[in-house]
Design a protein around this nucleic acid. Structure first.
Lengths: 349, 349
DNA sequence: TTGTACGCGTTATCAC
DNA sequence: GTGATAACGCGTACAA
């Protein structure tokens, strides 16, 4: 049975009304008499018609109800990070009332034929931690007239941004350490480039990833010469590896405090300190960033900067909604709150 | 400037060719002379035309390049689980060559106007851990003629399933414990219903969540009377809470071994054991399920059942591809591999 | 290799 | 409250 699926015209004919009337019954945009509605619904049931074809409706309306989310790497890496998870949750929550869902699109999938922002029927796009490599995508998308919002990234050109006061926040953490008397302070950073290059960042190097650069700048505002070790991702394991490097040197050379750019990294650094026989915070102070619960960190409570990750996602969703209304939402700058814990203490002497 | 966006006809006119020729230049389905191609491309550049409108193309082709993924709860919860992350990664990898992306759809979002499988332009749908509540959705989607694949769920009705040999696998773990001489064995299960009801599962209760039921059945094949404590999610914290309950009783009453239905739960149970002053595996043996790396579990290596979660996702993607080709892929049953670690040992006496 | 003609299934608009 | 009309932008037989 290769029988064609029923269309709204079929239903209309069966019900003895015009296609437009039948359409209105399903969309509810215009009042319809009860009798007509019932007739149409009966005809639909009869023919097994389950409502308008979303593809045709989206062509006609010019809306698909889909928001593309461009993620950098694998979904695996993305969702490994609790901050990103919260963010996606907030975003999905904020676009749902628009009748929109999130379409996951990978940036450099390398797969032939993979869907992209230009081939997918998206109404708007959200770019996550947009780095320099994303710029190309951006201009093409804008040429299509697709509204774009950027989260934690450097978009320029009048694109609404949802950002954090990363620099000021990290500066607060650094000042907290200075007030405690620390002088030998190191930083463990988030990824510095799309390859996930690990290692100490050479002096004078300009980092293309905004969030990493800004947090590092904040640290350097207080400790201009602090060595910075870049990791490949925000995870406990990455923090552990970085911590091992930092704590490998002779005692007089080791940092007495570490500014980690995420809570997961901080948890890893703390573990590395324990491995090296150092006590936290007696021998080493550690700060994090994000303010997310870290499984298995107890009894420590990180000294950290709390951000509202879900709020970031919601703000992005709101911006998308505005853009779809034809408005021009401004950028949003969210602020972090410093939360002292028990992982920082006076510098050892 | 409210100027209409350029269409392919505009480009064709500008280039002095027919619309169909211009279309062919973009789709590459038919050979075109170099001269024509260049003229069309020049015209496109001139008019700022960036390729066919995906909405119109999808109506015409009857394909949108979108695979809907129906997730039960919040994205947060979904991606908290490393198994689900791997699965989504495998799935996204497998559908990318189809030119398809994953559209995240929440089951019971409760949000007015939220997108659903019937309102979104999806070519196919993947149901994750489909429980009894999902059945309704399923029939409606099938009425639309949208191909569906179910992962770890009970779909019935000729829907291809990607499943695991949960029962056999868990039975192996239980037999391992029996061989070690354990007699007082408890189980910590995954969610038993959509509400995430925690607590001991009453005897004789039938569980609607397939994966939970099957793994429990496997445990009961060996230990018919083993108490089972249900958690709300696969996480360390849930395992910790469950473990605290299990280890709260007097010594002669406590289980000497715990079959946890996931590695994260197992990690939590181990932590609870440590809290209670019990040594693993000297006082308590613990098994997991999944075979995923658990951050911070070292130096333990879980005795567990290794499953290929990414492979599960890929299998689902492949099944989707087949369905879209009009074929009728069968169900896939993947098997787990028992991997002994250092968290199980002889029963204490 | 290129052009013509048509339809994909729906909905906005306006007149009745 | 209902119906006629006209797009929405494109892909693809088929003919030339």
């Amino acid at each position: 049975m290769t029988t064609r699926r029923a269309t709204i015209s079929d239903v209309a004919r069966e019900a003895g009304v015009s296609p437009s009337t039948a359409s209105v019954v399903f969309s509810g945009k215009t009042p319809v008499s009860d009798l007509t509605r019932q007739r149409v619904q009966a005809a639909a049931a009869e023919l097994g018609y389950t409502g308008p074809d979303p593809r045709a409706a989206s062509l006609r309306r010019g809306r698909s109800g889909i928001v593309g989310v461009v993620v950098g790497s694998s979904l695996q890496d993305l969702f490994l990070d609790p901050v990103q998870r919260l963010l996606m949750d907030g975003l999905s929550e904020a676009v749902a009332p628009l009748g929109a869902g999130l379409l996951l699109l990978r940036r450099n999938s390398g797969v032939e034929n993979a869907p992209t922002l230009t081939t997918a029927p998206v109404d708007a796009a959200v770019l996550l931690s947009c780095d320099s490599a994303t710029r190309a995508t951006l201009t093409e998308v804008q040429a299509r007239g697709i509204p774009v919002v950027v989260i934690e990234g450097d978009a320029g050109y009048g694109v609404p941004r949802i950002a954090l006061d990363n620099r000021e926040a990290e500066r607060q953490a650094a000042e907290h350490l200075r007030a405690l008397g620390h002088t030998r302070v190191a930083t463990v950073t988030l990824w510095q480039d799309e390859h996930g290059t690990r290692g100490f960042i050479p002096a004078g190097m300009v980092i293309g990833v905004e969030v990493t650069r800004e947090r590092l700048d904040g640290a350097r505002d207080v400790y201009p010469d602090a060595p910075a070790y870049a990791t490949a991702a925000s995870s406990i394991d990455e923090g552990l590896a970085a911590g091992r490097v930092l704590f490998a040197g002779p005692e007089g050379d080791r940092p007495t405090a570490v500014l980690a750019q995420s809570d997961l990294l901080a948890a890893g650094v703390i573990r590395a300190a324990e491995e090296a026989g150092l006590r936290v915070p007696a021998d080493v102070s550690v700060t994090g960033f994000d303010g997310v619960p870290v499984d298995g960190l107890a009894p420590y409570e990180l000294t950290t900067l709390v951000q509202d990750a879900a709020g970031k996602g919601r703000a992005a969703g709101l911006a998308v909604a505005r853009l779809l209304e034809g408005e021009a939402p401004g950028s949003v700058l969210l602020t972090c709150r410093f939360r002292p814990g028990n992982t920082t203490g006076p510098a050892p002497r």
